[in-house]
């Protein structure tokens, strides 16, 4: 594994309908770091993630993932090293069975059948969903869907995991399992979330986005203690840090 540094320089993105979504984003994310991306709805979190996965190409500025600048030619390499977990598991799990879904990426990489099978098993074991292997995705619970979604990208052995709202719609137990799982990963993780408690648990670093700009970038604890910053970016201190009498 090379040093998977992710680097964005003055990234701007304008939607086809002329609304500016990203407005000069620059940052550097180091290998193995877990970074939370927080901000109000419409702050540009999902757009930024889409850029990292090579779904969108910046209107201006550059993005580097590892050894490659992200552009049309390098997309296959970028997609191999970046695994993106979409917000809605129903968009991510499109195949007839869990096995097919987890095998989809490895098969596209052109791996031989035995290797595909091995990777599927390993990925499912990691997320604790090995028993679901032959189930069709529409029969899974929300937590199971999320776990399998993560397995679909783990099977490609990515260096970077990108997640959009991973805890949305999960019940408390499933959410707790997810947090523990995310904590156990050694990958570089970039997680867009409204769940600030999750951010606090998993990510040592937090980037606050507002109106397509980086408002703050620093250690998670420090950022969540900055009440004026939180208020400015329509966020709220994590419950755990609100000092309720216990």
């Amino acid at each position: 594994m090379s040093h998977h540094i992710i680097e964005l320089k003055d990234v701007e993105y304008v939607y086809p309908d002329q609304t500016a979504a990203l407005n000069g984003i620059s940052c550097r994310i180091l290998h193995g770091e877990a970074v939370a991306l927080v901000g109000a709805n419409g702050a540009g979190k999902s757009t930024l993630l889409s850029h990292l996965a090579g779904i969108f190409v910046p209107s201006k500025g550059t993005i580097r993932v590892g050894d490659y600048p992200v552009n049309k030619q390098t997309l296959p390499h970028v997609r191999r090293s970046v695994g993106m977990v979409f917000q809605n598991a129903d968009d991510q799990l499109f195949m007839p069975t869990v096995f097919d879904d987890v095998a989809f990426g490895p098969l596209n990489l052109g791996l031989p059948p035995e290797e595909v099978e091995k990777r599927v098993m390993e990925a499912l074991e990691i997320v604790g969903a090995a028993s679901l292997i032959h189930r069709p995705p529409y029969k899974l619970s929300g937590g199971q869907k999320r776990a399998v979604s993560i397995a679909t990208v783990l099977s490609m052995l990515p260096d970077v995991l990108i997640m959009d709202e991973p805890s949305a719609g999960l019940d408390p137990l499933a959410r707790r399992k997810l947090i523990n799982l995310l904590k156990s990963f050694k990958h570089t993780r970039i997680i867009a979330t409204h769940d600030l408690d999750l951010a606090l648990d998993v990510c040592e670093r937090t980037i606050v986005l507002a109106e397509g700009k980086i408002l703050a970038d620093g250690p998670t604890v420090q950022i969540f203690n900055d009440e004026s910053l939180l208020a400015k970016s329509s966020l709220e201190k994590p419950l755990r840090m609100q000092g309720f009498p216990t």
Partner: peptide
């Protein structure tokens, strides 16, 4: 919109126009 998102999810996992089922 959903079809669009599914397509993106497929692209992110190396989709090249062939759906492979083992």
């Amino acid at each position: 919109d959903r079809a669009q998102r599914i397509y993106q999810a497929m692209m992110c996992r190396g989709f090249d126009g062939q759906v492979r089922i083992m």
